[in-house]
Design a protein around this nucleic acid. Structure first.
Length: 618
DNA sequence: CTGGGGTCCT
DNA sequence: AGGACCC
């Protein structure tokens, strides 16, 4: 191999990135700590954060009495009768505290190289920061630092005790890890000062190792894994992690672990149930499974990762948290919600989802808490001489920074699989001049269409619905012009002369609404495509006729059928004339079926799916 | 009577 | 659309 252009001791291009320095930060009993910040009377008491029938998180006082995380309420009360329960089903406050902490830590780490894992864990890649500080030590600008907090492995601890004043005799990597442990302490102190929550940290050369060792000393402590001698680094690390059950390692989930236990007992011939997830340690797994064995069990890709993890190797990079999440979802669980009560839950969840979208995806008028993106947006607007939207007092107005283009409904019947369907997000929800409850009803209609699709696919398992999740996904910078659903709020018979004139006089139709699909479909195909693109209309294709678009309240296939079917009917409620293919949906979903809503018709009265009668048994 | 969220890969 | 993983 040619070394042309490379110095001998530099890594070649085929080698991995240089050794990284990672801090894994974990907030102590996060939900409990946040609840105590909100209500200090909870300090010092055994507390459990309750979600439905389980204790999501428990305070250390409760853990001392044997109340574990994810324990059932009944078991928890049995262990600790004086246990105090705090409702933790609404995550708003926790989310707020989590964001505060994330911002503080991001501001302390170069390039904001901070990854979020859930609401209470952060990974920081401080390689470059530590490198600079190390170079200053070498240059004599700063004195070498001792490690802060707990130190591993033993060999390093012993050497520290032996050579007290000779920090500069340690290996460069070791000294960088020492530096990082001081940085971790500084970060933890800042979080404690500014937010009032304690945390624990692990400092190592990978995310996986940092997290593993960070868990060794909690709460309010930290641990650095700094092998002091390159000759023993691999061995020391391996011996340290070998006793851990693989389940504690980041890539080994319950399914993988169970499979490995299963295979282990069959190949080693030991009786069933003697290889438990607890006893399946890294050492055991590494002894029993080589790369080939893992590959046969899990496939090449996963096997390579798992095999590396068993050897203490983890190349997963720290991925900076994006400005906006990939999805925003709201969910609730039920003990078996009857189908007829589902729509009201759609409204409730839809309202919550809209609140969150407005909170997280819109600019906020208060300049003090203006996001970076909003400032940039305003600067750009200024540069382009585009007007920044102002309210009637001349103050900045809230605007959408991102638009979720899709809406996904996920449900679960019983405790089996989750079933999900998605559709275009109805654009009406972005019009914040409309009361939120009205927009929630628009969401409800979309959800109902999706739910019918779910039930068609899934059937009725006779136990009602146990979970509903509403997710806003596919975030876009660009505001969508219209959805198919919004399109059909438009009068279907708008081109009927007598109706058309009346409607235009009463309520001018926005420009983007002046084309309807039937008209569009009459155009030559090349023109149709151009027009559709201009108005952001999704043209029916073979693919979406049979897939996604059929979940719209009015399906694409129905749209196509208008051209051949000219028969009209009168609505029994309002007498409105419409194509017969619209009648069925119009009577059930007046809002999405046709331009107006029947008077005196509440959502409670909606017989939104009479075909469930024969399948609904509870 | 087993939460309420998220991520990425297939 | 589902399944694995994470908290």
């Amino acid at each position: 191999m040619s070394t042309f252009g490379l110095k001998k001791d530099q890594p070649s291009s085929t080698e991995q990135h240089p050794t990284r320095i990672i801090i894994a930060l974990d907030l102590d009993a996060f939900y409990v700590a946040a609840s105590r910040k909100r209500d200090p009377s909870l300090n010092g008491l055994p507390v459990a954060i309750k979600q439905k029938t389980i204790c999501a998180t428990t305070s250390y006082e409760a853990r001392a009495k044997g109340v574990q995380k994810l324990m059932r309420i009944r078991d928890a009360v049995a262990k600790c009768p004086e246990l105090i329960f705090v409702d933790g089903e609404d995550l708003s406050y926790f989310r707020k505290i989590s964001t505060e902490i994330f911002k503080i830590v991001s501001s302390m780490v170069r390039d904001g190289l901070v990854e979020k894992l859930g609401m209470d864990e952060l990974f920081c890649d401080v390689t470059s920061m530590v490198e600079d500080r190390y170079n200053e030590e070498i240059a004599g600008i700063c004195p070498p630092v001792k490690p802060f907090g707990n130190v591993l492995p033993q060999r390093t601890k012993h050497r520290l005790e032996q050579k007290k004043g000779d920090l500069d005799e340690f290996d460069p990597l070791t000294r960088k890890l020492f530096i990082a442990s001081n940085l971790a302490q500084t970060i933890r102190e800042r979080v404690a000062e500014e937010v009032g929550l304690t945390s624990s940290a692990g400092i190592a050369t990978s995310k996986c190792l940092a997290k593993l060792i960070g868990n060794l000393h909690k709460p309010n402590q930290q641990t650095v894994l700094a092998p002091c001698d390159p000759a023993f680094a691999t061995q020391d690390t391996q011996e340290l992690i070998d006793p851990f059950p693989i389940r504690k390692v980041n890539g080994f989930g319950s399914v993988t672990t169970a499979r490995m236990c299963e295979v282990a007992s069959s190949t080693t011939g030991v009786p069933e149930n003697t290889v438990t997830p607890e006893s399946m340690t890294i050492l055991v797994a590494r002894t029993l499974f080589d790369h080939t064995a893992l590959s046969e069990m899990f496939g090449e890709r996963i096997a390579t990762r798992l095999h590396a993890l068993l050897h203490g190797i983890d190349d997963e990079p720290v991925i900076k948290a994006p400005d906006f999440p990939a999805q925003i979802s709201i969910e609730d669980s039920y003990f078996g919600l009857p189908f007829e009560k589902v729509p009201e839950q759609f409204v409730k969840l839809g309202d919550s989802l809209l609140r969150r979208l407005e909170l997280e995806l819109m600019s906020h008028p208060d300049p003090r808490q203006e996001s970076e993106e909003e400032k940039v947006r305003k600067q750009e607007a200024e540069a382009e001489m585009v007007e920044v939207p102002l309210d009637i007092f001349g103050n900045p107005r809230s605007t959408w920074l991102r638009y979720p283009l899709s809406l996904r409904l996920t449900t679960r019947q019983g405790y089996t699989n989750r079933i999900s369907r998605q559709t275009r997000m109805p654009v009406e929800i972005f019009d914040i001049s409309v009361p939120r409850i009205e927009r929630a009803k628009v969401l409800m209609h979309s959800c109902e269409a999706l739910f019918r699709a779910v039930i068609q696919f899934e059937g009725n398992k006779g136990m009602g619905i146990h979970l509903i999740n509403l997710a806003a996904i596919d975030l876009s910078v660009h505001r969508p012009n219209q959805s198919i659903g919004g399109f059909f709020k438009q009068p279907v018979q708008a081109r009927t002369p007598v109706v058309e004139s009346r409607q235009i006089i009463e309520e001018p139709i926005p420009e983007t609404n002046q084309i309807d699909m039937a008209f569009l479909m009459e155009l030559p195909e090349d023109v149709r495509r151009e027009v559709a693109q201009e108005y952001g209309i999704e043209l029916p294709t073979e693919a979406n006729q049979s897939a996604g678009s059929q979940y719209e309240p009015l399906s694409q296939s129905s749209i196509l059928s208008t051209q051949s079917s000219a028969s009209t009917m009168l609505c029994s409620h309002c007498g409105l004339s419409m194509s017969s293919w619209l009648q069925h949906d119009h009577e059930r979903w007046p809002d999405t079926g046709l331009p107006h809503k029947h008077k005196d018709e509440d959502m409670d009265d909606l017989d939104w799916d009479d075909e469930d009668d024969d399948v609904m048994s509870i």
